[in-house]
Amino acid sequence: MNTNLFFNFQVDKSSKKVFITRDFNAPLDLVWDAFTKAELLDEWTAPAPYKAKTKYMDFSVGGKRFYAMISPDGSESWALQKYTSISPKTHFQFFNTFTDKDENPAPTGSEWDHTFSHKDGITRVHITIYNESLERMEGLLDGFKEGYTASIENLENLLSSQMSQ
C-alpha cells in the first residue's frame, strides 16, 4: 500500500452504507478509465489472489457489466452491474446484484455511487455503497475467504434456493 495516499474506509451498519475515499497519484482521465473500461476493471477489481473477468460491458445509462470473480481454484462468482447515471469524468452510479452464470439475480443488491475530483496531480475518488439489506452487507465477505471454497458453494446454494422460491 502506498501509505502517502489518502485512504478512508467507514461502515455505517445503521444506514447499511459503506464510505470509501482514496487518492490516486494519476491524472483524472486515467483513473476514470480504470473505473469504467472493462479491460482495466479486470486488472484490479478482484483482490489478490482472485481474478476478475468481464463477460460483456456497455458503459452507458441503462447499459450493464456482467462479470465474474474467479477464486484460485477456479470457482466463479458472477455479478451484474447496471449503470443508472453517468456524468463523464465526474460521477457515475450502478446497481449491483450477485447472479448465477445465467444472470439470474439474487433478491437484494447494492447501489454504488462514485465521485471523481482532481487537484494538483492527485485524483480523489469517493465511493458510497448502499446495501439493500444488512444480511447482504454482512455476507459480502463470504466469497472472499482465502482457501475456503465451501463458503462460495454455500453462497451459490443460498442464491439458487432463494431464486427458486
Binding site: 500500500m1 502506498n2 495516499l5 485512504f7 482514496r22 490516486f24 497519484n25 494519476a26 486515467l30 483513473v31 480504470a34 482495466l40 486488472e43 484490479w44 477489481t45 478482484a46 483482490p47 489478490a48
Partner: peptide, 9 residues
C-alpha cells in the same frame, strides 16, 4: 484492490 489499481495506474 487499491494496491492493484495503484500499480495499474
Amino acid at each position: 484492490k487499491f494496491d492493484k489499481l495503484d500499480k495499474l495506474l
